[in-house]
Design a protein around this nucleic acid. Sequence first.
DNA 1: TTGTGAACATGAAACGTTTCATGGAATACG
DNA 2: CGTATTCCATGAAACGTTTCATGTTCACAA
Lengths: 329, 329
Amino acid sequence: MTKAHNGPTMADVAREAGVALGTVSRVINGEQVGEAYKTKVEEAIQKLGYRYNVSGRALRTDRTNTIAVIIPNTINPYFAALVHHLNVALEKRDKKMMLCFTEYDRGREIEFIHMAQQNRVDGIIALTYNPKLTIPEDIPFVTIDRFFSSSVPCIAADNFGGGMIAARKLKELGCTSALFMRIGSTLVNEPSKRKDGFVSGCVEVGLPFETMILEDGQPLDAFDRFLESRMKDGKLPFDGLFMGTDYQAWHIIKTLRRLGIRVPEDVQVIGFDGIRMFGDQELIVSTIVQPVQEIAETCVSTVLSKHLSNVPSLICLPVRYAAGGTTKE
Amino acid sequence: MTKAHNGPTMADVAREAGVALGTVSRVINGEQVGEAYKTKVEEAIQKLGYRYNVSGRALRTDRTNTIAVIIPNTINPYFAALVHHLNVALEKRDKKMMLCFTEYDRGREIEFIHMAQQNRVDGIIALTYNPKLTIPEDIPFVTIDRFFSSSVPCIAADNFGGGMIAARKLKELGCTSALFMRIGSTLVNEPSKRKDGFVSGCVEVGLPFETMILEDGQPLDAFDRFLESRMKDGKLPFDGLFMGTDYQAWHIIKTLRRLGIRVPEDVQVIGFDGIRMFGDQELIVSTIVQPVQEIAETCVSTVLSKHLSNVPSLICLPVRYAAGGTTKE
DNA sequence: TTGTGAACATGAAACGTTTCATGGAATACG
DNA sequence: CGTATTCCATGAAACGTTTCATGTTCACAA
């Protein structure tokens, strides 16, 4: 099946305008062109209904003005916000975004990197879950929340600091015993520092604590069974709960209520991420808010920076606590 | 600045393998090739670390295996779900998705269509808010929820039917008077039929009703002022409320509670869309659930179908009611 | 008048694929 | 053994841009 190419090309425009091909190119790219030529070309473009062809340029220049963004999905509002702000930051710089959803599938993560290479993207921003991921060296690569090597810049929230803030907050609110729970790999994973920060914070303020970490991929209801096993006389042996993410916090609050525990009266809960319903309503839980916009902006400016080698290999951005009704102020 | 093209090409692979260029192409595309040649080529690819270049093909074939998806954003979970399912449906067919966020900006909607044309996408799926949008004729175009002309297929939920279901449900639950409120254009807008269906349903079951429709772009708190104006002695003159979207329902429930009205005890509320937190938790409000996955699947199969002209110009997919705690069963 | 530069248009050669008309070798058939 | 037929590899010509080395024109100074 031969595809009949149709539509006028730059050559047609040039012929119509009575100028050289290169002149048309320079008009289109806004380069220095004599006024008379410029108008002739523009008229010809109008008349013929010429439409620029991106593939031609991409082939010739080997650049696409496109950045690949690799992310699990857009179902989790935190990811949705991230994608949103990445898109804003890229658009501001006249870059296009090629979006790849991995659904947490490691094979797909690798596949998408190949695809990005085949498309000759100008850079990759990735939030992945494969600790052994091979990062291509010949293309600017930036990760979110994952540290691979000092030659691959990683942008993350200050997870450690966030953990500390949560501990201090629980103490301040009068908690006498705390629990931290989280699902997530402890490998290349910056967010795993939430625990370290929380532990430090608890030690600092003298708050007794325990922690429970599950490996990536475990179902949420593993939390439920743990909670049930800790119940005694309809009570839990802690009154402060710090969860690894807002998603997990949201889940656990429903579990607590199902078990007859009141939130925040019996147990105060803090999450992590700063998820808002519809992006503009109140927080769904009290939480450590990630600076999503700054993270996105930093990812973009880093991946586009000319000299990736001069960039820090880990950039941590400040977080803050915000009340969302699951802690009693 | 001349870009130094680097990396091996098909020609290099051909030379290395001692075969013709065309043969390499056929190996890569999985066409009929003699076994001996095939292995020679594959070895050469391995050895050279050859990487396919998508731009070359796009230029030559004038096709990109890419479908543009134009949508306001990914912040509203309904859109997020749509994008998710569109991506699944496209990936199933080995198509790529080029995602464009308009943020409800009409200029951007037009701009993105241009961009899609310049990228020679194989089709466009769009959920837009510009009633005067000019649809390109030379490229398969499918809309979600917007009817432009009989030559542009529109995929939508059965909005009319959904309205009827809502009316019947409120009646069934014992409501004696109902209100429908919605923000959204009444022009090319399929969702505006939610009102028509609701009206029909109320007439059918003998439920007194009133409606209040605001034009696109109005702020949500216009609803609040309306409600306040209808309050008398701390009570509202209706006990059933059907909202145009879950987003609007979510907002209004907070307003009602702020006004001292209990939901669902005093007023039963039903929304439209079927939004779930994190895509997998319970519904945020009682609602008419849109068949997002079917909508996405239908969009994709329609836009890719060879003969768009044989396709119906409006495809309505069935909805269903689902309880989410804001109606008292 | 001639010489010098600046400014800018020209023409052709890439870029990395796909595709198509040729043609050669092998197989099948009479 | 001769002829048809099938199967595949080959080589070259596109596809629509950008870019670069050459030309051309024009203005101005000497």
